[in-house]
Design a protein around this nucleic acid. Structure first.
Length: 518
RNA sequence: GGCUGGGUAGCUCAGCUGGUUAGAGCGCGGCACUCAUAAUGCCGAGGUCGGCGGUUCAAGUCCGCCCCCAGCUACCA
């Protein structure tokens, strides 16, 4: 028998030098929806996010502002905590790599790797980009007119030669491949898994894991001249947050291995190759899954700072409303693919799916109940085949949703709900309760009862996606807070007739685009 | 250059181990209804399923070759 159901989901820790943009919001949103879904489904959830605050770039930025790095990171990491409020993200913990708990954890991991013989000291010479915090081989570089070189990312590089500790990544290729083979869902989507596997099959080089050219980071134990390389530092946050190095008590035993590391596709390799190698080398079980999602374009254009078309999540929320934005981001695109954000598509989804399909469904049903059933959940008679089919669809919804959510298929999950919503609208027209009102009021009551029960299910399962809006909808159904978990889905907990309902109010107003003068 | 994924209605995409008239949403045309947020429902037009060849009683669905797109990776330098 399995123990209590637990779910540990993480976002990457965000680099404090960045200003929060739609990419950060998107990654964290996906995790938030999963966390909320699992909580409602009875899981003990830990949802972790945080900020990556070390490295040469941060050190430089602080210097430029004339403040010490800690003061600087205190200021800028706040922007990411603010984003949690703005987007209504339900993170359980916010980790910062500058915290003491993290220093202890990273140093402990280092000692372990060292003990196990996976770290050695050598000299490193190569082209390094401060901006990218990465080394490049010369063949990757572009030679400029003045003889200097430029990285593929466009960043300047410099030749560095220094002592460095190395992690014996080259020794882990076969074990990684074996691990991928035994865990076919470790990397999703499938196409990303293929990429990673072919990368590993091509052979791995040892990894430089310390630097001596800056100070802002976690010192290597026993050799203060060295600062740990940013990825070893950053990735370790996932176990720091569950209490590492205490592997035998508390949160570590409860939550590790993590169920899911959600990442953008640009940092997949660090999570799917380096991280499991570090963990295996330290005798720690790797996470269960790394999911690499895609990027957004803006009105068909690639987003870049230099073009100046970065999408600000705060502006989106102010313009369209939080829940509409949350809905759109997970609805518009098969999760894992790249997607395009456009104002037209945004408004289209809001009006046709939220306002017309769902909002109007609730409104038309609830106002009929309000006017014709004394404002209370109507009593029902015997159910017809049509009624039974509707109820069966509603009661069965959660089973389909779990399957989709377990593979992060948010857009399929939402489509599944919308199939029922559209079916409800069809059912209303078919049954025409406004006619039954005169011909067969009892039958009208039954039809409305079926509809209210369907709407209750729809609102319950959509809570993770649109917490505020669905709370409002459940208020309209007079469902108490204690009856909003997934325990109350299905035929065992159907609505009892006679419950008084408040006067209906619109939940999703139409979005009217202001006419722009030429 | 290699590897991987993809090219299906105007647009965005579903189509599992090959099997009756290839589907959905949006958009478009028409009709119906009037409970509702000028919302909803129904019907319809629209596709040589990238191209060519092959296997099969039967192929978007398998095989080969080719074209185009994307990602990863390599090398030339």
């Amino acid at each position: 028998m399995a123990g209590p159901k637990r779910y540990y989901v993480t976002t990457p820790i965000y680099y404090v030098n960045d200003v929060p943009h739609i990419g950060h919001a998107y990654t964290t949103l996906a995790c938030d929806v999963l966390a909320r879904f699992k909580r409602l489904d009875g899981y003990d959830v830990k949802f972790l996010t945080g900020t990556d605050e070390h490295g040469q770039k941060v050190e430089k930025s602080a210097q430029e502002k004339g403040i010490d790095p800690q003061t600087f990171t205190d200021q800028v990491s706040q922007r990411f905590r603010d984003l949690l409020q703005t987007m209504n993200f339900s993170a359980d913990d916010f980790i910062r790599t500058t915290e003491e708990r993290h220093r202890i954890s990273v140093q402990a991991l280092w000692e372990k790797l060292k003990q196990n013989g996976d770290i050695y000291l050598d000299n490193y010479a190569g082209w390094y980009s401060v901006r990218d915090e990465a080394f490049y081989v010369e063949s990757e570089l572009t030679k400029n007119a003045d003889g200097s070189f430029t990285a593929p990312t466009g960043a300047p590089v410099e030749w560095v030669e220094e002592a460095s500790y190395f992690f014996k990544l080259s020794a882990w290729g076969d074990r990684l491949l074996k691990f991928y083979g035994e865990n076919p869902d470790f990397i999703l989507p499938k196409t990303r898994r293929n990429e990673v596997m072919s990368f590993v099959e091509g052979g791995l080089n040892d990894l430089s894991v310390s630097r001596t050219t800056f100070k802002w980071g976690v010192p290597v134990p026993g050799d203060d001249a060295h600062i740990m390389y940013v990825w070893l530092d950053a990735l370790t946050n996932y176990i720091t947050a569950v209490g590492y190095p205490d592997e035998n008590h508390g949160e570590f035993t409860t939550y590790w291995p993590a169920d899911l590391h959600m990442v953008g596709k640009d940092i997949l390799r660090f999570h799917a190759v380096y991280w499991p190698a570090f963990l295996m080398a330290a005798g720690i079980e790797p996470p269960k899954r790394v999911f690499a999602h895609g990027w957004w374009t803006n009105e068909g254009q690639k987003i870049s700072k230099s073009v100046g078309n970065v999408i600000d999540p705060v502006e989106l929320v102010e313009t369209y409303g939080l829940d509409a934005v949350r809905y759109f981001l997970l609805r518009e695109v098969p999760f894992g693919n790249d997607g395009d954000f456009s104002r037209t598509a945004m408004v289209g989804r809001m009006n046709s799916e939220l306002a017309n399909d769902l909002g109007n469904l609730a409104q038309r049903v609830l106002s009929m109940v309000n006017k014709n059933c004394d404002g209370a959940v109507p009593a029902h008679g015997e159910f017809s085949d049509d009624d039974k089919e509707m109820l069966a669809s509603a009661h069965g919804l959660i089973h389909q949703l779990r399957e989709h959510m377990d593979v992060q298929a948010f857009n399929s999950a939402l489509e599944t709900v919308w199939v029922l919503i559209r079916a409800c609208n069809g059912y209303v027209d078919r049954q025409a309760p406004w006619k039954l009102k005169k011909e067969d009021p009892a039958r009208m009551g039954t039809v409305l009862y079926v509809l209210v029960e369907c709407i209750r299910h729809i609102a319950l399962v959509l809570q993770p996606f649109m917490p505020h809006a669905m709370a409002k909808m459940l208020d309209l159904l007079a469902i108490s807070d204690a009856h909003r978990s997934f325990d109350f889905l299905g035929s065992a907990h159907v609505l009892e007739p006679g419950r008084a309902l408040p006067a209906p109010e619109g939940v999703f107003p139409r979005f009217v685009v202001e006419e722009q003068g030429a």
